[in-house]
């Protein structure tokens, strides 16, 4: 994600978030963009599904039923309306599992990105604003983290701490913060040289205030752009960790864990892995579309 910084950084951006009329403007921009609209619809739907999973799900996602193992989806031979998307190797209803799985996938995706964002933005602001020794020390730390592939990092940490929704959020959060730190640092570097910051500094406003009042609002928009895409990446990463046996553990379900559990059945009972796969793909598509649109809106250059 760091390379995004080349296209977005060093740019002065109007502060859209603070102006109330901005919302209306966004709405107009959104309707004009086909992909943006599609993205928003998908993301909103996914969130609604996650929130309403207990209401929507026809079955308990963890209830096993040996009599009903590997029932195919309703439109196939032997399928029943009882299990619209079929059942898995323990007779659990796949539709219900996917509905519930959306909760964990989205929570892990969003929370870990927020956590990464908080760490990254803080480190980036401090490094960029103070510069000097603090900057180079923090940047070496960033380099170190960048040089270790995320999945490898997660692998080692999760081998120590039992994988759960909570630990996954923490792990993905602390492995992904570097991208934000780099971006925010370069933003902060350019902003701090600008007149209003210098002015604030000269009349004795404290560092903390300058950072929170002046720097933070100015880096928020680029943060939003990267973080949307990061949510998508995280959802996929969670699936990969499930493949390695380090995703969420049963009875908790996530799309990644359903997909991973179904991989032994790809040749014989395709529906186990296909439906969660579709869920992931569609959601990621929606998030990326939304993210692209956000970038177009927030980055005047690419308009």
């Amino acid at each position: 994600m760091t390379h995004e910084s080349h296209t977005i950084s060093n740019e002065v951006r109007p502060n859209l978030i603070k102006r109330p009329s901005a919302l209306k403007k966004w709405w107009r921009l959104l309707i004009r963009s086909k992909t943006g609209t599609v993205g928003l619809i998908i993301v909103v739907t996914a969130i609604i599904i996650a929130l309403l999973a207990p209401v929507l799900a026809p079955h308990n996602p963890a209830a096993i039923n040996p009599a009903n193992m590997l029932t195919p989806p309703v439109w196939m031979e032997n399928g029943t309306t009882e299990h619209i998307l079929g059942t898995d190797n323990l007779g659990r209803d796949i539709l219900s599992r996917i509905l519930y799985g959306s909760q964990v996938s989205l929570i892990v995706g969003v929370s870990s990105v927020v956590l990464a964002g908080i760490i990254g933005v803080t480190v980036g602001l401090i490094a960029g604003y103070f510069g000097g020794f603090i900057d180079s020390a923090l940047m070496r730390l960033v380099d170190a983290f960048l040089a270790i592939p995320t999945i490898l990092f997660a692998l080692v940490i999760l081998a120590v701490f039992e994988p759960s929704v909570f630990t996954l959020i923490i792990v993905l959060g602390i492995t992904n913060w570097v991208a934000y730190a780099r971006l925010v640092r370069s933003e902060a570097l350019s902003i701090k040289e600008r007149d209003f910051v210098r002015a604030a500094h000269s009349i004795g406003v404290s560092n903390f205030k300058i950072i929170t009042r002046h720097l933070l609002p100015n880096v928020i928009s680029s943060f939003i752009v990267i973080s949307t895409l990061s949510v998508a990446t995280t959802i996929i990463l969670e699936a990969s960790l499930s493949f390695l046996g380090l995703g969420v553990q049963p009875p908790t379900v996530s799309w990644g864990s359903i997909l991973s559990d179904g991989r032994d059945y790809l040749a014989t009972s395709w529906w186990l892995a296909t439906f969660p796969g579709i869920a992931i793909t569609v959601t990621v598509l929606g998030i990326i579309f939304l993210g692209d649109w956000l970038r177009d809106v927030l980055d005047p250059k690419s308009k």
């Binding site: 992909t35 998508a232 996929i236 699936a239 790809l266 892995a273 992931i280 579309f289």
Partner: peptide
């Protein structure tokens, strides 16, 4: 773009087995 996104959204292990 859609094709690219689908490519990105497919977990490696799933794609490999397929």
């Amino acid at each position: 773009t859609g094709a690219a996104v689908i490519g990105k959204a497919m977990p490696n292990f799933w794609l490999g087995i397929m």
